[in-house]
Design a protein around this nucleic acid. Sequence first.
DNA 1: TAATACCCTACTTGTTTAGTAGGATAACAA
DNA 2: TTGTTATCCTACTAAACAAGTAGGGTATTA
Lengths: 136, 136
Amino acid sequence: MLSKKTKYGLKALAYLGVQNDKKPIQIAEIAEQENISQKFLESILLSLRKSGFLGSKKGKGGGYYLLKTPTEILMTDVMRVLEGPISMVPCVSLNFYEKCDDCPDEAACSVHKLMLMVRDANLSVYRNTTLADIIQ
Amino acid sequence: MLSKKTKYGLKALAYLGVQNDKKPIQIAEIAEQENISQKFLESILLSLRKSGFLGSKKGKGGGYYLLKTPTEILMTDVMRVLEGPISMVPCVSLNFYEKCDDCPDEAACSVHKLMLMVRDANLSVYRNTTLADIIQ
DNA sequence: TAATACCCTACTTGTTTAGTAGGATAACAA
DNA sequence: TTGTTATCCTACTAAACAAGTAGGGTATTA
């Protein structure tokens, strides 16, 4: 299941992505428009800022804005930050590889084989999809 | 992340799949060979039996065995029983569809759009993979 | 009739999720 | 300079879920 964090994060990015100008948008506005708890959204936007997707401005007239254009924002990167590893098991992860402690032989493991295929299928979606592709 | 339940269930199915004869295999043997807690595996095999993948035999010489040949066991079905819905959000699920309560317009939802692509990618893997494909 | 091995329910423990609470800090405007 | 706005940051919490454990009951076979 997709976590609410990821869902809300994606919705917020999409909301910022459809704005034509680069004027900062307030958390409160996004939260209200997208039916998200404001405080929860606050922490999500914070992590999106820390990972380089968003810029922010404090004080009156402040808010968040995209640092790149939607066509430059890859779902691979967004998903890794919001949802974590794309692989369903660490032993097939490109960025978070870890050997299974219970599995003596990766090459012979049926779970490994299946999860490799699943990982590749997911990666091909996320790598070929940008924020621009999912807004409008 | 893939649950241990699914991981163990797949390993057990694979273990039963490589047996050439149809002789029942005991939980204890699978648990030992695959490094799985026996009691936990017991409950997993029980659910695989109740969903029609396995047959069982009680008493001495008893155990579990596949009810179909590995080429007939689709990953779509296995994953749905062990891991639950293949979709990451209910609003794109074929078998467990549910409308999002916070989302006014599915067609315009960016999360919906992305998750549709992800669902299709995963389905195409699971639908085209049988137990036979992941053993050996 | 004793041993074997599955059958079934209920409980426990640890982790994660989805928030809440409450204040600190920076920027702008009067 | 002072009040207001809005982000920044830490810590806490309730509920759900995962991953087992415990302890028997029941059917089959020798």
